[in-house]
């Protein structure tokens, strides 16, 4: 299956080929966010916010074909 990954802030350095941090990633069906994070060679400790299709979730969240997955380091503002 293919998912759309969006990396933000400092995580974008892991996607030098796509400056806006957006990339399509092939994953085996039934994968979780954690498996995706590992497949991307990201350190899970660097990932603080996970959104799958706009909904916040944890690493254990299963992902499906076509999902939009946003990953953020700790960030804030206001």
């Amino acid at each position: 299956m293919t998912v759309e990954v969006r990396l933000f802030a400092t995580l974008r350095r892991h996607a030098p080929a796509s400056p806006n941090g957006v990339m399509a990633v092939e994953m085996p069906a039934g994968s979780t966010v954690l498996e995706l994070v590992r497949a991307l060679n990201l350190d899970p400790k660097e990932v603080h916010l996970i959104m799958v299709n706009g909904t916040g979730c944890g690493f254990e969240q299963p992902i499906s074909d076509g999902d939009r997955i946003g990953l953020f380091p700790p960030v804030g503002g206001g």
Binding site: G54, P74, G76, G78
Partner: peptide, 24 residues
Amino acid sequence: HPVTGKALSAYGTDVLINILNEAG
């Protein structure tokens, strides 16, 4: 704290554009 120690100085508050956009 990672937000007050690093994130706010690096990206300013405007980092929220992408966060709120992802969150809908």
